[in-house]
Design a binder for these strands. Sequence first.
DNA 1: CGGATACTTGAAGCATGTCAAAACCTGTGG
DNA 2: CCACAGGTTTTGACATGCTTCAAGTATCCG
Lengths: 248, 248
Amino acid sequence: MGANQADKRLDIHNSEVPVVCRACEARHRGICGALTPEQLSHLSRHTTRHRLSRDVEVTVAGEDVHHYSNVLSGVVKLTRLMADGRQQIVGLQFAPDFVGRPFRPTGEVTAEAATNVSLCSFPRVVMDDMIARSPDLERRLYQQALDELDEAREWILTLGRKTAAEKVASFLLMIAENIEPEAAESNGSICFELPLKRADIADFLGLTIETVSRQITKLRKARVIVVENNRSVTVPDIERLRARCEAE
Amino acid sequence: MGANQADKRLDIHNSEVPVVCRACEARHRGICGALTPEQLSHLSRHTTRHRLSRDVEVTVAGEDVHHYSNVLSGVVKLTRLMADGRQQIVGLQFAPDFVGRPFRPTGEVTAEAATNVSLCSFPRVVMDDMIARSPDLERRLYQQALDELDEAREWILTLGRKTAAEKVASFLLMIAENIEPEAAESNGSICFELPLKRADIADFLGLTIETVSRQITKLRKARVIVVENNRSVTVPDIERLRARCEAE
DNA sequence: CGGATACTTGAAGCATGTCAAAACCTGTGG
DNA sequence: CCACAGGTTTTGACATGCTTCAAGTATCCG
C-alpha cells in the first residue's frame, strides 16, 4: 500500500542482499524469504545477532516483548508455568523458525534456550511496521502459525491419549524429523543429538523424569534405539520407531 | 495490486451489505468484518447456510476440503482419531469462529457438530482467492490462528500437568467464558447449557467418561456447581470455580 | 581427582482406567 | 398417563500405569 521511497534513498546498495543475510537459512525457508532486498537491508540495519547458552530466556511470560527473533541454530523451548511450579513445554522452535507473538505485547509463555542457541533479533516496532506493509511477510507468518497450530494439535492428541511409551517414541520421532528432515523420509537409519535433557523431555510429554528414563531404557533394550553419552541417539530403523508411536 | 473492477460491474447495489449478512455476528467479531460491502456481496453470492444436527461431520480428516465455514451458532469440535480408535478433541469452535485450514487441501483433523449447529459456508476457491486479494481478511485469519494457538497451548498445559479435578474445572470455566463472555468477567454467578456430553468432555480432557462424571459429582457435592438435567450448569461463584483450576 | 549435574533403577502408593451394573432422562406409542 | 426402549450418566469394586521417594551410577568439567 504505502510508498516507502524513503528507504531506497537511505541505502545506495538497496538491491543487494545484506551480507549478514546472504547465507542465512531464514532467507530460504524462514520468514525473511518474503522480503525484498530493500526490506531486508532496512530490517538488517536494526538487527542484532547473539548467542544464548542453555536455559537463558528469550522472552518471559507476563513481561513486555520488545524483540522478535529468528532461530538460526539450536532449539528454543516455549514453556508455561503454574503457580505451584508445575511446568509444561508447549512448543519447540527449530531453525529457521520465527519466535514472537504479533498483535499482543505480552503473553503467558516463556521462550528459553533449550540448547545453545543463536538468534537474529529485531525490534518489535520495526517488524510490526513491516508486517503491516508487506502482505507477503504476513502470509509467511500466518503459514508458520498454522503449521504451529497443526503441531500443537498433534501434541494435544499425544498428551491426551497416548501411553508413556508411545509419548517417548513420538517425541524421538519428532526430533529426528526436525533435525534430519530428508533422512526421516527415507526408511533408513538416523543419528542425531538429543537437544533436550530428560527433564525437558518430561516437561514436554507431561511425564516425570523417571518415567522418561524408564521408557528410553525400554526402547534401548528393544534395540529400537542406540544411545551413547545419554545424548546422541541412533535409530537403526525408523519404521520400527514409527510403529512404537501407536500401539504394541 | 490486482484490480477487481469486474466485481463492481456485476453488482449494482455493490455498496450495500447483503441482507443475509446484516444481522450476522461474523460481520462484527468474525472474519467478515474485514470485508468491504463489495467483497461481502461477492462472497454472499456463493454462500450457503445450513443446519447440522449433533455428530454430523463438517470436514473429514484425510478428505479434500471444498468449503470453509463460519459458525453462526452451536459448537463445532475438532477431533483427531488414532488407528486403534482412541480419540481426542483438539479444538472447539464457537460462533463466530472460522472453520477451515487455508494453504492445505486436507488435514488430520475432522470437524464435527458437537451440538446442533448452523453454519455459513463458502467454496474454498472463492475464499482462497479473496484471501490472496485482501490483506485485511488475511490479517483477521492470522489473528484467529494466533488466538487458537494460544488456546491450544493452554490446553497442552492442562492435559500435560493438571489433575483430573483441575481439568474438569478448567473445562467448565472455559465453556462459561465462551458462552457468557461478559458475565465471566464480573465475579458473579453464571448459568449455561453444557454444549458437550460427558463422552466429548472426556475426549477433550484426555480422560474417561467415568472420571469426568466422578469429578463433576465432586464439584456438585462441594457446591461449586449446581447441575440440572445433566446439561444445564449454574456456577454460583466463579472465583470458587477458578480456584479449582490450579490447586487444592 | 572431586564435586556437581544428569541419568538410571527399585519399591511402594495413588490417581485414573477398566469392567460391570444400576439409575436416570427423553421421546414414542399404546 | 403409563410403559418401554435407547442413549446417557452415575456409582462401585478392582486393576494398573505412572508418580513419588530414595538410592545409586554415569558423565561432565573444573
